[in-house]
Design a protein around this nucleic acid. Structure first.
Length: 423
RNA sequence: GGAGAAAUGGCAGAGUGGUCGAAUGCGGCAGUCUUGAAAACUGUUGAGGGUCACACCUCCGGGGGUUCGAAUCCCUCUUUCUCCGCCA
């Protein structure tokens, strides 16, 4: 959520910047400004009436104390009208504030100046590429066939017990999953991220805090009996750890990592690109989250990108980094780098990590602030990234490391797996 | 699941209808003293709206109500604690 003050002061530049997202924000901004002005004028009027009625109440108290009941009762009558008006104004104020809030929720984050214009993922800008794309032997398979051949992931069993998009990992497949989780967590904690285990369900306030609500309501599984949401990413519970906090400048940086399963309804997804591990309703992910001073957040973003690079380098997977264009940029993000691993057998790139700076967009919803050197409250910056999402890393490993004798385990993972080959 | 108690500023903890945005202690910050630090002493120290700045307004777990007036009374929800039951 953008800050009102920022909108008031930078109306034109916000509208211009949001054009990169291919939206005309002018009507929304105009609505916000109008509602804001209305809200403030109602507030001013209401404040005056409340001030008067506060004053009268005090006088009445004093009159009663000094035994002047008659005068007191006369004043009481005066307050009746004020009460009526203030009730009405109060209702007005609430309605206007709610409408304003609703309108603010509709406006996405302002893209960073480096974000390229564009409509779709075709317009994303490749900024880095590394690693050799292996030459596979004749008869190399995509991961869903490998999974079946070596009996390490069973999609049908998942369908039986739950439904499509809920795979069952078996034997060495399960062990490799666990190995990846431990390996990622170790890499992240070694880089100074504190490991956290958080709930896998969150309440509504948390959903609003990081921006999944109300924008992506239909993407989350909602447990209606208890009004809780299954998390679509660890970003939600981890970032919300500091909802409503006021930090000291010296608290920065705050760096967390956490492993969680992630649940996504993926309503409307279909086709070849959702085969196998490419798109799931439940998958595992290790996330990194940072809370930063605004002056340092872009440096932090670069550090996160370097960190993820190091992991992919160590896994010896061919990958590239894209700077997302305005049309592909998430609602809450100001700048996002996507990491993609090349799937040799599928001959396409698979997104395995997304690293973003949300600037103050989430912090404003979270009321996540810090005290600056003048003792004033300022919004912090929040960032997060996958480090890393398991299914597509697994797909990349299976497909790129396959040999005629089985699937080799990347050297870095052998100590975690306890075996070198899936055969 | 049943019975009872409670929720107040960063923390602890007073406050049961007006003089309370809230005593006191701890912590934080600034100053005095000191070569420096500690101790001691003095001052200061919640959040939000509003204003050029003041004024002013709102907030004592959330929501609603009673009253001229609510941290204080009533209703309701949530959470925590104690006892009982159940349980990985």
């Amino acid at each position: 959520m953008l800050q009102l003050q920022t909108i008031r002061e930078n109306k034109e530049s916000i509208i211009t910047a949001l054009k990169k997202r291919n939206i005309d924000a002018a009507p929304m901004i105009a609505a916000v400004i109008e509602l804001d002005e209305k809200r403030r004028s109602i507030q001013t009027e209401l404040d005056g009436i409340l001030a008067e009625s506060n004053k009268l109440s005090k006088e009445i108290g004093l009159l009663f104390k000094s035994g002047k009941a008659q005068e007191a009762n006369a004043l009481k009558e005066k307050t009746a009208g004020l009460k009526e008006t203030s009730k009405q104004l109060g209702d007005d104020l609430n309605a206007t504030a709610a409408a304003l809030q609703e309108q603010l929720y509709l406006i996405p984050n302002v893209p960073h100046t480096s974000v390229p214009a564009g409509n779709s993922d075709a317009d994303n800008e490749e900024v880095f590429r590394e690693g050799d794309i292996p030459t596979l032997f004749e008869g190399a398979m995509p991961h869903w066939e490998l999974a079946k051949k070596y009996d390490i992931i069973d999609f049908e069993l998942g369908v039986k017990i739950t439904g499509a998009g809920f795979p069952v990992y078996k034997g060495k497949g399960a062990r490799l999953q666990r190995a990846l989780i431990s390996y990622f967590l170790d890499k992240n904690t070694a880089a100074g991220y504190t490991e956290m285990q958080v709930p896998h369900m969150v309440n509504e306030a948390s959903g609003y805090g990081t921006g999944q609500l109300p924008d992506k309501e239909g993407q989350m599984y909602h447990v209606q009996a208890d009004d809780l949401y299954l998390i679509p990413t660890a970003e939600v519970p981890v970032t919300n750890l500091h909802r409503d906090d006021i930090l000291a400048e010296s608290d920065f940086p705050i760096k967390y990592t956490g492993y969680t399963p992630c649940f996504r309804r993926e309503a409307g997804s279909y086709g070849a690109h959702v085969r196998g591990l490419n798109r799931l309703h439940q998958f595992d992910k290790v996330e990194i989250v940072r809370l930063e001073h605004p002056n340092n957040s872009y440096q932090a973003l670069d550090e996160m990108v370097e960190h993820v690079k190091n992991i992919l380098r160590e896994l010896k997977l061919p990958y590239r980094i894209l700077r997302l264009c305005g049309g592909d940029l998430g609602f809450t993000s100001a700048l996002t780098y996507d990491f993609e691993v090349f799937s040799t057998a599928q001959d396409r790139w698979l997104e395995i990590s997304s690293v973003s700076n949300f600037e103050t967009f989430q912090a404003n919803r979270l009321k996540l602030r810090y005290k600056d050197e003048n003792g004033k409250s300022q919004l912090a910056h929040t960032l997060n990234g996958s480090s890393l999402a398991l299914p597509r890393v697994l797909a990349g490993i299976l497909e790129n490391y396959q040999t005629e004798n089985g699937i080799k385990i990347p050297d870095a993972l052998v100590p975690y797996c306890g075996f070198e080959l899936i055969d």
